[in-house]
Design a protein around this nucleic acid. Structure first.
Lengths: 211, 211
DNA sequence: GACTGATGTAGAACGTGTTGCAAGTCTAGA
DNA sequence: TCTAGACTTGCAACACGTTCTACATCAGTC
C-alpha cells in the first residue's frame, strides 16, 4: 500500500474496459481474466496474496496492461468485490425470501450472505480490506455494492420482490443495518468477532430497529 | 502495507515500553517522542505521510528501535489513535453533558468528537485507515478505543456521569450507534460523505434507536 | 573497574505496489 | 494494402514497509 491516494494513471482519453461493458471482445475477455485471477488469488491467500505481478501473470497480461485496466490494487479488489456481489444478488433475486416477518426475512438474507463470505475467509478478508481502503476514485464501484445490498434488504423487508416504495424511514433503517453488517464483518475479518457474534449483532440491530 | 498479517518481530522476552507505562524513563520518553512524531506527520500528510523512516528521524530514534517499540505501521497508528482518543475522553469527562434528552446529549458528544476529527482531516484519515486495517495483534489497542467510546456514549445517555448500570439493551444500542459512527467516519474519510451527512446519519440512527 | 545481556544505532537489503519507457501488435479508415 | 494511433508487452526503476547485520552504549552484577 505504498500510495493510498495515488492518482490513477489513466488520464489519457477513454480507458479501455474500465466498465464491465464496452471495449472490444478481447478487452472484455482480458478484463474477465484479470478479475478471475484476482478472485482466485484472494481466495487462496487473502489480501497479501493478491500481488499485482501474480495477477498479471495468472491473467496472462503484462503488468502495464493490468494497471491500464485497474489503476491500483484497491480498484482491482473493489471491482472484483462488486462483480461477485452483484452476481450473488442477481442469483438470489430469482426466488422469494422465506420467513414470516420482516425480521426473519432480513436475517435470512443477511445470514445467508454472511455465511457465504465466511466460507471463503481469505477472499472476504481481501475484499473487506480493499473496501475499507478505497478512496474517492472508487466511489462508483462502492456505490454499486451499496445499492446491491440495499436492494436485497429492501426486498427482504417487504417480503415481495420490488413490491411498493421504500419509505424514508425504511431507507434509514436499511442504511443502519448495512452499517452494522459492515462493522461486524470488519470485526470478523480482523479477528475480533466470531461467526456467532456477527449473526447476533445483526439480529439485535434488526430487532431494535424494526420494533 | 507489505505484510498485513505479519507476525510481530518481538518474540524475545518482554518488549520495551510496549505499554505506555513500564520501562525506564528514557524508554517512556522515546515512546512519547515516537507517538508525537506520528501524530505530527499524520496531521500534516495523512496515512501516506506517516513513513516509518520519517517517524524514526523526527522522533530521533533508529528505524530498528521504532520497530522494537511498534512492530508495524498499523500498530504505531492505532496506538497513537488510542492515546489521543483516551486523552480526549478524559478531557471531556470533567464536565456534564448539556442537553435535556438522551438524544440531545448523545448527539452533543458525538458531534463534538466528529467535529474535532474533521478539523484534522489528514490525521483522521490516517487513524481511521489504520484502525480498519488492524488485525488480531492490535486487539488490545482497539478495545481501548471501543471502551472509551462506549463510556462516553453511556454517560451521555444517562445524563449523569457514571450514574446507574448500563442495561443489556442500552449496551446494544450503544454498539449500534458506534457502528454507525464508524461507518459514517469511513465514508467521510473516503470522501463519500460530507460533514453534514455524517451528523445526519448519526442523528437518524439515534432517533430510531431511542424511540 | 570489567563482564554480560539487553537495548539502541546506522545502514544495507528485500519484497511488493507503482511508474516509466521502448518496442511490438492490432484495428479502423484511406 | 498502408498508415496512424491506440493498445500490449517486457522490463527496468523507484518508493516505502519491513527485516537483517554489525557495532555501540548502557545498566546491573561480580
Amino acid at each position: 500500500m505504498t500510495s493510498v491516494s495515488a492518482e490513477p494513471r489513466n488520464t489519457d482519453g477513454p480507458t479501455p474496459a474500465t466498465a464491465p461493458t464496452g471495449g472490444s471482445a478481447a478487452q472484455r475477455e482480458r478484463r474477465r481474466r484479470i478479475l478471475d485471477a484476482t478472485i482466485t488469488l484472494a481466495a487462496e491467500g487473502g489480501f497479501d496474496a493478491v500481488q499485482m505481478r501474480a495477477v498479471a501473470e495468472q491473467a496472462e497480461v503484462a503488468l502495464g496492461t493490468l494497471y491500464r485496466y485497474f489503476p491500483s490494487k484497491i480498484h482491482l479488489l473493489v471491482s472484483a468485490l462488486a462483480r461477485e456481489f452483484t452476481k450473488d444478488v442477481e442469483r438470489s433475486a430469482v426466488r422469494a425470501t422465506p420467513g414470516d416477518t420482516a425480521h426473519e426475512r432480513i436475517m435470512y438474507v443477511l445470514n445467508r450472505r454472511t455465511r457465504a463470505l465466511q466460507k471463503q475467509p481469505k477472499l472476504t478478508e481481501a475484499l473487506v480490506r480493499a473496501f475499507m481502503f478505497a478512496d474517492q476514485s472508487v466511489t462508483g464501484e462502492i456505490h454499486e455494492v451499496g445499492t446491491s445490498l440495499t436492494t436485497v434488504i429492501a426486498r427482504a423487508m417487504h417480503g415481495a420482490p420490488d413490491h411498493g416504495e421504500v419509505t424514508e424511514e425504511e431507507a434509514a433503517i436499511i442504511r443502519i443495518i448495512s452499517d452494522v453488517w459492515l462493522s461486524a464483518l470488519i470485526s470478523w475479518v480482523t479477528g475480533r468477532m466470531d461467526e456467532q457474534d456477527v449473526e447476533k449483532s445483526i439480529d439485535v440491530a434488526v430487532r431494535l430497529l424494526l420494533r
